[in-house]
Simulated assay, not measured.
Amino acid sequence: MGRSPAAGDAGAAAGGPGAERSTQDLLALARAGDGAAFRALVDPYRHELQVHCYRILGSVQDAEDLLQETLLAAWRAIDGYQERASVRTWLYRIATNRCLNALRAGARRPPAYATYQPEVPLPEPSHRGPEPSWLEPYPDALWEGIADQVPGPEARYEARESVSLAFLAALQQLPPRQRAVLVLRDVLGFRTAEVARILDTTQDAVTGALKRARGTLAEELPGADRDGAPLPGSPRERRIVAEFVRAFEAGDVDAVVALLADDASLSMPPLPLEYRGRDAVRHFLATVALRTGQRHVLIPTRANGQPAFGCYLRDPRTPIRHAHGVLVLGLSGDRITAVTRFLDNALLARFGLPRSLRP
Rank of each mutant, 00 (worst) to 15 (best):
Y116A: 05
R177G: 00
A112P: 06
A102P: 01
A166W: 02
A166S: 15
L91P: 05
L91N: 08
D79Q: 14
Y116M: 06
T115V: 14
E154C: 03
L91H: 08
Q82Y: 05
R76G: 10
V163R: 15
E161L: 13
E69L: 15
A95H: 05
D148Y: 01
L165V: 11
S126D: 04
V181D: 06
A73H: 07
R88V: 00
Q117N: 03
L66R: 13
Y113E: 12
Y157A: 12
P111K: 03
A95D: 08
Y116D: 01
Q178F: 03
V150N: 01
L71C: 04
T89N: 02
A63H: 05
L71Q: 11
E131Y: 07
E158V: 11
V163P: 00
S126I: 02
D65I: 13
Q172G: 09
H127C: 02
E64Q: 14
E161Q: 14
E124V: 15
G145P: 01
Y116R: 07
R93A: 15
A180M: 06
H127Q: 12
L122H: 08
L91S: 12
A85C: 04
V181E: 13
T70F: 06
S162F: 02
Q172T: 14
D65K: 09
R98N: 14
E158F: 00
G152Y: 05
A77M: 02
N97L: 12
A107L: 11
Y81A: 10
L168F: 10
A77W: 00
V120E: 03
V87S: 10
L184A: 12
E131Q: 15
L165R: 10
I78P: 00
P151C: 01
W134V: 07
P137C: 03
A180Y: 02
S86M: 08
Q173S: 15
P176N: 07
W75I: 09
S126V: 04
A102G: 05
R84Y: 01
A102D: 08
D65A: 14
D140W: 01
R128N: 01
R88Y: 08
R93D: 07
Y116S: 00
S162W: 03
L66Q: 13
R93Y: 00
I94R: 11
P111R: 11
D148S: 10
P130R: 11
V181N: 07
A77I: 00
A166C: 05
R156L: 13
L182P: 07
P125M: 02
A74N: 06
